[in-house]
Amino acid sequence: MWQYIVRRLAIGIIILFGISFITFSVTMVLPADPAARWVGSRATAEQIAQARVELGLDKPLLTRYAIYITNLLHGNWGLSIRTHQPVLKELMTYLPPTLELIIAGMLFALALGLPLGIAAATRRDGWLDQLCRTVSVAGVSFPTFWLGMILQLIFFRYLHILPLGDRLDTMLDMLSPIKHYTGFLLLDSLFSGNIAVFINALSHIILPAMTLAAYPIGLVARQSRASLLEVLNEDYVKAARAYGIKERTVLYTYALRNAMGPTITVLALSAGYSLTNTFLIEALFNWPGLGNYTSSAIITMDYTAITGITILVAIAYLILNLAVDLILALDPRVRY
């Protein structure tokens, strides 16, 4: 077990080096001159040359890669070309809203997908089963940003029940100030007893979280259906039924618990997809997170910010995959 964890971590570190090398080489093929961007459009040739020395762009490639790696390891991820602020600090302020959104989306997907999968498995080939199949194919076919717009049209424009975007109503944080502990607005407001903010934040997160959930809902429904069907065929389920144990107990205590493993895996793996999906959803809902930060970085060609995001997201993805494997390894039936 420990051997397995150590080996996985070692491979993870090698992959991180590979990732940093790719992000580094991508900035090398940059057609636009970063030094020219750094000093702005009205700079003289001399100023550009000076910025080139300041940014270390005059040194040979391998030296630059070595410098780049040491800086990354020291938490010095460079200054944003756009805001001239440390990239790592900026990323850390934009990370919590994005995590909050992703977690809300995952919970949505689980809350809707799992019952659908269970219903489909217990009433095989019934109308719920057909619905499950349709949802799982449709969910992965929806252009996410379009779904978001349609939801905005329905719930904001026509039904007037949910806000269009943002994380909170403007001015609300002035009327009832928010204490920041975790950066997760919902948790912070709940813990500090700020119910007005909590309810407002909740109403703001519903639409983007629903949009984000569209893709994993189908995956969860499909996977929980498939693994539940498999488990329901096992001898121990038949034995439990033969003993006359209530069907509900058989389903929820005996079968579902064993069918949850693959479902959780699928959900966790889809979090990587959701992470990039937030780039689109945050732009649409004006959600002040990493995705929005990325969009502005793309528009302004802020290359230090973009490589910073890439590395952060790749690390998150790596940890996620590792976590999934470790959780599964806790199952005594899985041995390495």
Binding site: I15, I22, F279, I306, A314
Partner: peptide
């Protein structure tokens, strides 16, 4: 295969976003 591992360790679409940004 190790090269493919590195490419596959990016979440889908992120690598495409980065490359497209830098290519123009």
């Amino acid at each position: 295969m190790r090269i493919t591992d590195i490419f596959l360790s990016f979440p889908p679409m992120l690598l495409a976003i980065v490359i497209a940004t830098f290519l123009g």
